[in-house]
């Protein structure tokens, strides 16, 4: 066990857990934040993706020891933001959600993209989402949702 301090959704937090715990488990088990999902546990699907210092990271491959001093945003924090509302609305309007298990991760990936590139082309969107597997939608409507969000949320990113 070791004390690790980091910023989580805007607030400083210290947890006392083994450094080799997966950050995903810290979030889901210890902190009760179950919005990040486990689809594979091996970095392949992106369902567990969170933002670290504003960029997308898979929390299932992140040991707690790597989080010290970092700034973490999960879907639970992100959903309170204006940008989230824009993305949420775009995902609904474009029908980008089916079973929904990939969706929180997709939203985090979309935020990470738009944060770095507010006006992405379709190709850039595809590349940005390539680490987030979706088995339901065939992605098409997700691409449209990200495009719509970029347009509707112009100036926010």
């Amino acid at each position: 066990m070791a004390k690790v301090t980091f910023t989580l959704n805007g607030e400083s937090i210290t947890v006392d857990e083994p450094l080799n715990m997966r950050f995903l488990d810290i979030l889901r088990m210890k902190l009760g934040l179950t919005g990040s999902k486990e689809g594979c546990g091996e970095g392949e699907c992106g369902a567990c993706a969170v933002l670290i210092d504003g960029q997308l990271v898979n929390s299932c491959l992140l040991p707690l020891g790597s989080v010290e001093g970092r700034n973490v945003m999960t879907i639970e924090g992100y959903r309170k933001t204006k940008r989230y509302k824009i993305l949420e609305d775009a995902f609904i309007e474009e029908g980008a959600v089916q079973c929904g298990i990939c969706t929180p991760g997709m939203v985090m990936a979309s935020e990470s993209l738009l944060n770095q590139n507010p006006k992405p082309s379709e190709k850039e969107i595809r590349i940005a989402l390539a680490g987030n597997l979706c088995r339901c939608t065939g992605y098409e409507m997700i691409f449209k949702a990200v495009k719509r969000a970029a347009k509707e949320g112009e100036g926010l990113w």
């Binding site: 083994p18 450094l19 080799n20 715990m21 997966r22 995903l24 488990d25 889901r28 088990m29 486990e38 546990g41 091996e42 970095g43 299932c60 491959l61 992140l62 040991p63 020891g65 790597s66 010290e68």
Partner: peptide, 26 residues
């Protein structure tokens, strides 16, 4: 950790099964 965490994967909600002392240099 993208190689190490996969290789030393354990059951979910249990710590990674590292076989030696670990330095988290991230």
């Amino acid at each position: 950790g993208t190689d190490l965490m996969v290789k030393n994967r354990s059951w979910s909600e249990t710590p990674a099964r590292f076989k030696q002392d670990m330095l988290y240099i991230h």
